[in-house]
Amino acid sequence: MNPNELDHLYRIAEAIGDGQVVDWEGEARARPELTSYLDELRMLETMGAATAAVSPGTDHVAEVSTMGKLEERVRTALAERYRIQRVLGRGAMAVVFLAEDPRHGRVVAIKVFDPRKASSVEPERFLREIAIVARLQHPHIVPLFDSGSEKGLLWFAMPYVEGETLRVLLARHRQLPLDDAVRFATELAEALDVAHRAGVVHRDLKPENVLLSSGHALLADFGIARLFRESQTATLTSPGTSLGTPNYMSPEQVLADPAAIGPPSDQYALACLLYEMLVGEPPFAGRTSDVVQHHLTTKPPRASALRPGLHPALDAVIAKGMAKSPADRYASAGELAAAARAAAAGR
């Protein structure tokens, strides 16, 4: 092919790239020697057009309008009880709205599960689970006000708490002062023990679920993980690959052994959390597949080696909380916290 022919083809190809209309018959008549190349280019143009036909518009617009529709649906579905004000945050599974509860004259946060993600969760089961969680009353548990399953939407309301999550605090300071770390762990342990006695396992303790308000820790989203994890297992086939973080996942959760998952699983996550508050990063980090493997087989690193001045007795507390076998952990989260307090005081 000579340079002139090549230039001619470039011009046509650039026109295709620009989405311009090409007069294929005219081109073929003008340059019969290029017919076979023109045919290939025309096929490529058709392919691009077919792709555009399969996916009209941009995805971004589609996503945004879906979200807008969800907000509208929530507004309508809850109109009798709440005035939806704005979106507070979006997660993988749910959107949290700020709303006014005129009947009680208070501001609430309403978590609404994305109907596309929650379609496999039975509304009855959701409400049953929420009812159990709603009975939990403790100063370090974010209480539940209300819940429902109106018009295909699963939602629950909780107080709107001013504050920030532990994740945000950790992002800002990396390592927390020893006293703060141990106190937060103690408060979370109290919350966990109360829940465990009521038969509720959190299953998803992580800094994102710990809300800090007036210097105290509040634990949110009790028991919610179970509903959605289970409904997700079908879609997330490979073990250890879940939308949630594997950083605080106990070995029995990694193995997805439902019979073995219980209060000690939350204690394991609490020990990971304590380690992260002290060291600035979770005990095991990196690729999901590696993290998952470490939870199963690797001894947790020593926090005192990474934070000089830390009493080595704390390493033993974390190691016991993170024992591979649930039976080797403390009898309760509270015992772990007590041991951590003693170790921190150098006793």
Partner: peptide, 15 residues
């Protein structure tokens, strides 16, 4: 202290 909503699954959805 900055204002923020209750915890949710994704800590930085705004990004």
């Amino acid at each position: 202290m900055p204002r923020s909503g209750p915890p949710h699954d994704d800590s930085h959805p705004q990004f």
